[in-house]
Computed example of a mutant assay.
Amino acid sequence: MIELKTPAEIERMHVAGRFVAEVLTEVGRLADVGVNLLDLEHHARGMIKQRGAESCYWDYAPSFGKGPFRNVICLSVNDAVLHGLPHDYTLRDGDVLSADLAVGIDGWVADSARTIVVGTAAEEDLRIIRATEEALEAAIEVARPGNRLGDISAAIWTVACDYGYPVNTEFGGHGIGRTMHGEPHVSNKGRAGRGLKLRPGLTLALEPWLARTTDQIVYDADGWTIRSADGSRTAHSEHTVAITDDAPLVLTRRDAEPLRKAG
């Protein structure tokens, strides 16, 4: 069931969104050559505990995962793009790191993701990150009353096509509010003018993600981490967005941050 939120409820989601943005900013600041993914996980865990927030990932056990997820943040490196299980890996110069975080505060949830390059950045890595960020902004721009869900999907797809990247449709955006994942599903590929009509109060997590040369995915043995099937590098950008009577409201907006994390 799709639940429309009141302005007061959206503001409560915005509280969670601002905290998600704060944690992702801090994780990006700390991510550096020589830093272990588990250190980033533990730092995020500490911030969540100190704030009195609730991780949406801890004990999460959807049909596509292998058992309960026992971490508070997804950290995906290079050809890994979604649901990266934090593990004993030390970041290297030139690594592409995607961080995805969802938390609840006082019963309301926000979800966001960002991708950066640690140390020396290859232009082709910066390019695919820019593609996901531009696709996300294009999707946000059309998230307005009277438009349709297909307009959002088409906006993402158009940017990906302009960059020459294939698009996977197995995982995409989703409704969000009292829980992390709800209706409707928001595909990253679609046709304008089709699907659910957008109304004020609808809240969506929009998340274009791309692999450089394939739309096929494989899973790690951990049952969670999703990688490009051909080993090509990836990127993932996500914001929680509320549709209002006026302009779209991005609930997880961060201050301007570089795509490259200097090493």
Rank of each mutant, 00 (worst) to 15 (best):
L126G: 12
A235W: 00
T225A: 10
D59N: 12
I105F: 07
N147K: 13
D88E: 13
L198D: 01
L82K: 03
F171W: 12
L206S: 09
I48V: 09
S98E: 05
V167Q: 08
R144H: 07
I217M: 14
A80N: 00
V103R: 08
G195I: 08
I128Y: 07
A138N: 10
N147I: 02
T225V: 09
G201Y: 08
I176Q: 03
S153K: 12
T244Q: 04
A155M: 05
L198C: 02
H83L: 01
V20C: 08
V20Q: 03
R212D: 11
L196Y: 14
P86Q: 04
N71P: 01
I48E: 05
D215Y: 07
V72K: 10
A143L: 03
A122T: 13
I226T: 09
T90S: 10
E183N: 15
H181A: 14
L24R: 07
G67V: 00
D93W: 06
A61M: 10
G150H: 10
Q50V: 14
T169S: 11
D125V: 11
D106F: 00
R92D: 14
F19L: 10
V142F: 02
N78P: 00
I226C: 09
V241F: 02
L204D: 01
P145L: 08
I129F: 09
A16D: 02
F171D: 02
G172W: 02
H83A: 02
L30A: 09
C74A: 15
N147L: 04
Y163C: 08
I140C: 06
A44S: 11
H14D: 13
G190R: 13
P258S: 09
A229M: 05
T213S: 14
